[in-house]
Design a protein around this nucleic acid. Structure first.
Length: 204
DNA sequence: TGGGAGATACGCT
DNA sequence: GCGTATCTCCCAT
């Protein structure tokens, strides 16, 4: 109902990265919703961004999804073990995306706890609750997002993003350098990481 | 309670 | 070989 429409994703990547904060990322599995509030994002700018997979327009089987129309998913494997979920932005052919780095668990808490720790939510200690989805690999595990979702249309019914129905208190957006891109020369210092001030669920 | 070191494990280039 | 990370283990500006 309050699902984000295609137009939301066609804006410039930095704008989309900021506007995604506070929204709800939803994965529907067998009619059940698993969701979390987006509290941390990073913009990846494609052609001119040495930190992006698509730097210089590099198009391979792996990066193909980044070239799609805004509002598709780009899911890739990192370190051979973890998946990272990105929201593709801009028009078709413009390979830019927003990496979702952290979520505050919202719905389907038992499903998340099961996927992450193989135990029910109520059995988790405080540290485990906080660590459910406070990193790009963790949130994919918590929401059962893997590479089978690569290229998925976020305007569909399986994986999508909604306005947060329960309008929480207004929040401030903080900006910093991106994490883990020290190799990216001048791009390593681009202020393209955005997160909600005082959130307990931001990574690191 | 929290930070740092080391191990991990595999598709992509 | 390397990588947009995480887990475990260990110890204590």
């Amino acid at each position: 109902m309050s699902k984000l429409q295609r137009i939301f994703y066609l804006d410039d990547t930095e704008t989309v990265a900021k506007r995604l904060l506070g929204k709800l990322l939803v994965h529907e599995i067998d009619g059940k919703r698993i969701s979390g509030i987006i509290v941390e994002t990073e913009a990846y700018l494609g052609l001119t961004d040495k930190a992006a997979h698509s730097y210089g327009g590099r198009k391979t089987q792996r990066t193909e999804a980044m070239f799609r129309l805004g509002g598709h998913a780009y899911v890739y494997l990192i370190y051979g073990m973890y998946n990272c979920f990105n929201v593709v932005t801009e028009c078709e052919g413009v390979p830019e995306a927003v990496l979702i780095r952290a979520l505050e668990p919202y719905e389907g808490l038992d499903a998340m706890a099961l996927a992450r720790y193989n135990m029910p939510y109520q059995a988790l200690n405080k540290s485990q609750v906080r660590n459910l989805a406070n990193g790009p690999g963790k949130l994919c595990r918590a929401l059962s997002i893997d590479r089978s979702m690569n290229g998925e249309d976020l305007c569909g019914n399986r994986l999508y993003i909604e306005e947060n129905p329960k309008i929480s208190e207004p929040f401030n957006i903080l900006t910093s350098k991106r994490i883990g891109v020290d190799y990216a020369e001048e791009a390593r210092d681009f202020p393209l990481r955005f997160y909600i001030e005082n959130s307990n669920y931001v990574s690191k």
